[in-house]
Design a protein around this nucleic acid. Structure first.
Lengths: 213, 213
DNA sequence: GTCTATAGCTTGATAGAC
DNA sequence: GTCTATCAAGCTATAGAC
C-alpha cells in the first residue's frame, strides 16, 4: 500500500506481464495491453520504444529482484555451513525459496511473471537469449555451489541436473491447471505450500541420485 | 524410404510442425507454412478447415504413435515383473524410452514435435486442454503404475512427482541451447545419449526421495 | 507526457474459376 | 484438389497537435 499511484510505465508493465503470460508474445497485441492498462496506444512507443523492448522490460523488472534475493540467500547458507561447502539441500533451497516466498506473500503480479518465465524458458525463440541475459551470472554461481556440495559428481551431471531442476520448477510455475485435472482435484497447480513441501526433496534426491551413478 | 511421395496434407503437417515449434502458434502465419511446404495458401482451409485445426492435427499425429509405444512398453515391464509391481525405474523407463528412441533413430520431425510439445506443455493457453486431450488416458496409467511401485508414497506426492518428472523431460526436449551456453559447450541440449543416461536416474531418485519424506 | 489520426503491412479466411 | 484474387480486420509504428 506504499504507493497506490502507479505511473504509466508501471501500468503498462503490469498489464503486459499479465497478458504476455496468458497468450505469449505474439498472441498479445499492443492494443490489448494498452486497453487493459487504461493507457493510450502510442505511449508504448514513447516509454519503451516498441513491443519487444516492452517485453524485455517485463522480464527484467522482477528478474533483477529475484537475482538479488537468490544471491543473498546463497551467501547466507554458505556462511552458515563454512568452512564446509553448503549442502545440496541448502543450495537448492536458496534457489527455490525466493520464488516460493514471492508467490506466497507478495502481489499477484509474481504469479504472472513466473508463468511467463516458464514459457520463455521452454521456448526456442526466447529461451537461450532472454533467460541467459537476465539469469546466467546468478545461475553460474548456483551451479558452482552445487558442484561443491556434490564433489563426487562429474560436472556434466551437475549441468544436466540443473537442467532437470529448472524444468521441474518452471512447469510448476506455469500453473497450467493440468495437475488439477490429472489428480481429479486432489492437487492444485497454484498450491504454493504443497509445491514447497515437495520440490526441494525431489530435486535434492534427484541430484544425489545422479551423483551416485 | 518407403513412401517418398508425401501428400499435400503431410507436407502441410511437416512444415507446420517445424515452424510452430520454432515460433509458437501465434508467431507462425499460414503464409509462412504454405510457402515452406510449397503448397497453396487456400489448401490449409480445404484440408484442415483453418489454422487451429491444423495445429491440433500436428499435435495429434505423433501423439497417437507415442501413446501406443508407451503403453506397449508399460505392459512389457509389468509383465516382466509380475506378480510384483514394476519398479519405479522400469515405469519411468517405459515413459521416457519411446521418446528417446524416436529422437535417436527416427526422422528429424520428432525433434520439432517434442520441442513443440515442450512449449505447449508449459503454456497456460494450450497446456491444460491440448495436453489433456491427447495424453491424459495414457498418463493416468503411468501414474497408477508409479503409485504401485511406491506403495508407501501418498497419492499427492506421486501427482506432484509426475509434474516434476514431466517438467524435467519437457525442458530437455525443448532443446533451447541454454545448457550449451551455461556449460560453455561441455554439454549439448541435443545430445540424446547424455540425456538418456541421466534423466531416468534423476527422476527415479527424486520420486523415491519424495516417497521417503 | 498524452492523444488523435493514419500510414503501411500482414493476417486468416473464402468465393469462384479451373 | 488446386489456384487466383481479394476482403475485412487487425497489426506495429509514427507524425504532429496539444
Amino acid at each position: 500500500m506504499a504507493r497506490p499511484r502507479r505511473t504509466t510505465k508501471e501500468k503498462l508493465l503490469d498489464a503486459a506481464e499479465k497478458l504476455f503470460a496468458r497468450k505469449g508474445y505474439h498472441g498479445t497485441s499492443l492494443r490489448t495491453i494498452t486497453r487493459a492498462a487504461g493507457v493510450d496506444l502510442a505511449l508504448v512507443n514513447y516509454h519503451f520504444g516498441g513491443k519487444q523492448p516492452l517485453f524485455e522490460a517485463v522480464l527484467e523488472r522482477r528478474g533483477a529482484l529475484l537475482n538479488e534475493e537468490r544471491l543473498r540467500r546463497l551467501a547466507e547458507v554458505r556462511r552458515a555451513a563454512a568452512p564446509a561447502p553448503a549442502s545440496t539441500e541448502a543450495v537448492v533451497g536458496a534457489f527455490f525459496d525466493p520464488i516460493l516466498d514471492f508467490l506466497e506473500h507478495a502481489d499477484r503480479g509474481w504469479h504472472s511473471y513466473f508463468s511467463l518465465l516458464a514459457e520463455v524458458n521452454n521456448s526456442p525463440e526466447w529461451g537461450k537469449r532472454m533467460m541467459g541475459k537476465t539469469f546466467n551470472a546468478t545461475v553460474k554461481q548456483f551451479i558452482e555451489a552445487l558442484m561443491q556440495s556434490l564433489p563426487q559428481a562429474a560436472p556434466q551431471d551437475v549441468y544436466w541436473g540443473y537442467n532437470f531442476l529448472t524444468g521441474a520448477l518452471t512447469l510448476s510455475l506455469a500453473e497450467t491447471g493440468r495437475l488439477d485435472v490429472l489428480s481429479a482435484g486432489l492437487c492444485r497447480s497454484a498450491d504454493v505450500a504443497a509445491l514447497r513441501a515437495r520440490l526441494g526433496p525431489f530435486v535434492a534426491a534427484g541430484l544425489r541420485g545422479l551423483a551416485r551413478r
